[in-house]
Every structure is written in C-alpha cells, then in structure tokens.
C-alpha cells in the first residue's frame, strides 16, 4: 500500500482551476521533491493536502494509507499523521511556543485516543529535538514565531515535524529565505527524520536544497500538472537548463 496516492487531482481556488490533473504517489520510506516555477501550483498542492478551506477538489482523489483525505478537516489530517511545514509560518502573538506545542501535540494524541502528555513529558521531548536544531531555550518561551527571524521560523517548523512524528511530511519551500548555514541546519534536521515508515514531500523552487536533501524521486510541476518525473539527476538538469526547457520538452 502506498503512503500517499494522488490520482487525477483537480483543485480550484475561488472558481479558478489551479491543479489540472495531478497523479503522484509516494511510498513509505521515500523522499520526493516537487519542483516547479512560480505559479505552477506548488503551494496549492501543499494546502490541498493539508485541507485548507477554499481549496476545492473538483475531481480526483487523495488517498492517504488507502483512505480518502479530501473530506477531513486540517486538524483531523494532522492527527492521522499528515504534517505541512509552511512556506510562511504564521505569528501567533501572546501564545508561548511551548504552550502551542503542548496544545497541538495533545490535541493530536487525544484525537487518536492516546494518553495525553503532561508538561514534563512535553518539555523533555521538545528540548531533545530543539537541541539538534540549535533552537535556544528562550525561543521556546517567546510567543510562537512572533519576531522570529526567517531562519528561526523554518527551524521551528522542523522542530514541530520532529515532535509530532508524522507519517507524511510536506515541506513547502522550507529553503526559501534561508542563508547557507540555516539551510544546512534545516536540511540535516530533515535528513535525520527520514525513516522507513515515513514519506516526505519536499516542495521547492530551487535545486539548491536538493544538494543537502537528496530525493528518491523528482517531479516537475508546471501549469497545474506533473510534466516530468525522474531520479535525482532531473533536479540537476533543471538547474542547468532552467524550467523553460523542461516544460517545453514535455
């Protein structure tokens, strides 16, 4: 059984069709990259998978571990193990990061019928993961993402991924706005979380990230469709000749 199977997915936003028939599957244990130029539908795909309101599936289906996801609310999907790291993580003033992490973690656990963690268990788990990502303790005590730098926000997304241990992680342009040191840190955080029972979908505009996170498969998204798929070499080809050439050939 495939972890994620997308079949002929059509999605409209405010009545305009953005995704025009995407077919894609990600097996457990694999990391796939989706690359594409601006406006190709990359973010629409990630929002659709996470269940954001306003992203209307007009045709096709999204199977996650064999079940259709499309009717579920975002929080239900998260509880089932779907995680989306946002391109622009949102600031939530006044809500202490650690509080947010505990509330979210326990909401997921509650939805799965699992025992909730107490404050000590959460703190221990957060600290362990924070250290690996070079996230200082005081950042955990600040309101979530409020006044964080771009790099800090992205690291916080990866921290959440580590904490929630999703089965399917979608990383939407996690490399955007990062300098080279931050990029390395985030990439090593993602690599550390590759696991046999986990699938990862990395969405990116640039090949640069894939120097550090080597994908099993690369898909090129253009005009709302997957126009080419291939191995890691495809990313290098894109870098050399640009999207124009690849899209045209398709």
């Amino acid at each position: 059984m495939k972890l994620l199977e997308i079949d002929d997915l059509h999605v409209s936003v405010q009545g305009k069709e953005i995704l025009k028939g995407i077919t894609l599957s990600v097996p457990e244990g694999e990391l796939h990259a989706i690359m594409g130029p601006n406006g190709s539908g990359k973010s629409t795909l990630s929002y659709t998978l996470a269940g954001r309101e306003g992203y209307e599936v007009t045709r096709g289906q999204v199977l996650y571990r064999g079940d259709d996801l499309t009717a579920l609310s975002p929080d239900r999907r998260a509880a089932l193990g779907v995680f989306l790291a946002l391109q622009y993580p949102v600031e939530i003033p006044g809500v202490v990061t650690l509080t947010f992490l505990k509330v979210a973690l326990n909401a997921q656990r509650r939805a799965r019928g699992e025992q909730e963690f107490d404050a000590v268990q959460v703190l221990r788990s957060v600290r362990q993961n924070a250290a690996a990502l070079n996230i200082p303790e005081d950042m955990l005590k600040r309101p979530l993402n409020a006044g964080f730098s771009g790099g800090e926000k992205k690291r916080m997304e990866i921290l959440q991924m580590a904490l929630f241990e999703p089965r399917l992680a979608i990383l939407d342009e996690t490399d955007s706005g990062l300098d080279i040191d931050a990029l390395r840190l985030v990439a090593s955080g993602v690599n550390a979380q590759r696991a046999p029972d986990r699938g990862i979908l990395v969405i990116t505009h640039y090949q640069r990230l894939l120097d550090y996170i080597v994908p099993d498969r690369v898909h090129v998204l253009a005009g709302g469709r997957i126009v080419r798929s291939g191995g890691p070499d495809l990313a290098l080809e894109l870098e050399k000749s640009g999207y124009g050439a690849v899209v045209e050939v398709a």
Binding site: D75, P89, V103
Partner: peptide, 17 residues
C-alpha cells in the same frame, strides 16, 4: 489554518489565539 494544521480543532484554536 496554521493552528488547525498542527492538529488543534477550530474552537480550541480560537480560544488559544
């Protein structure tokens, strides 16, 4: 959306915010 995508149901998300 951000809070919900992290597993927090809507009303709880509003209360948190």
């Amino acid at each position: 959306f951000y809070a919900m995508a992290r597993g927090i149901p809507e009303e709880e998300a509003v209360a948190l915010i």
